[in-house]
Simulated scan of single mutants.
Amino acid sequence: MSNTALIVGAGSGLSASLARLLKKEGFTVALAARKIDKLTGLSQEIGSLSFASDASKPDDVNRLFHEVEEKLGAPEVVIYNPSWRVRGAFIELDPADVAKTLEITAYGGFLVAQAAAKRQLALGKGAIFFTGASASVKGYPQSAPFAMGKFALRGLAQSIARELAPQNIHVAHFVIDGAIRSATRQESPDKPDSFLDPDAIAQTYLNILRQPRNAWTWEVELRPWVEPF
């Protein structure tokens, strides 16, 4: 049985926390991104393999899964983390930028989930997790493309969660409703814990992954205390 976890859209933030935690939990971790130079340090740190792949391109996604399967085994856990954002007044948006946002944020999620599900059905088990955002449930002004993409990703997750759960594949969508702490983004001293800690978010992903099948969660929201909802 495969014990491989694939993180698509890997980088230095939440996906790095997920990679470290999954490695600690005994998974063989594969990292995928359009540009893998940024993954060198993390790959060396946790002993993972990195794969160059554009999640919005069918050929890239197919090649990615074939390479991961060949080198590490079919991934039992797949996490979709890419997103692309374009902001601006609605009447001034460039249609090409909107299309790119939808391709990366939503269409790529479909491609990756389909490739993952084909292999997990053969395994007889698996998990497919999607990283959402505030925009998954709230459409903000001058952010229509991002809301469109994240709403679509949430719809994908809900639909295939219902379809694949009876076949022992756990699909879950995570609404990350707030700013995530990073080396360059820290909360002010007068508002401690007002940013989401990426390690804490990763722990929630692991908790959902470890749920018994008779009490699966398909969606969870995470937000700091300062975030209105």
Rank of each mutant, 00 (worst) to 15 (best):
M1L: 09
S2W: 14
N3R: 14
T4A: 13
I7Y: 06
G13I: 13
A16L: 04
S17Q: 07
A19M: 01
L22A: 02
K23S: 07
K24V: 10
T28F: 08
V29C: 01
L31M: 07
A33D: 07
R34Y: 06
D37R: 01
D37L: 02
L39N: 01
G41H: 06
G47A: 12
S50M: 13
F51Y: 15
D54T: 14
D54I: 11
A55Y: 02
S56V: 03
K57H: 09
D59H: 14
D60T: 06
D60N: 08
E67M: 05
V68D: 00
E69Q: 13
E70L: 09
K71C: 10
L72H: 10
P75F: 10
Y80Q: 05
W84Q: 14
V86R: 11
R87Q: 15
P95Q: 01
D97L: 11
A99W: 10
A99K: 11
E103C: 09
T105F: 04
A106N: 09
F110E: 00
F110P: 05
F110R: 02
A113N: 08
L121A: 00
A122N: 07
K125R: 04
K125E: 00
G126E: 00
G126W: 00
I128K: 03
F130P: 09
G139F: 08
P141K: 13
Q142R: 14
A147G: 10
M148N: 08
M148E: 09
M148P: 12
G149D: 09
K150H: 03
F151S: 03
A152M: 05
Q158K: 10
A165N: 05
P166G: 11
P166F: 08
H170V: 00
V171G: 02
V175R: 13
V175C: 10
V175I: 15
D177Y: 14
A179I: 09
I180G: 04
T184H: 13
R185C: 03
R185L: 09
P192N: 07
P192I: 02
A200R: 06
I201G: 04
A202K: 08
Q203T: 15
I208F: 11
Q211L: 10
E221I: 08
L222S: 13
R223Q: 12
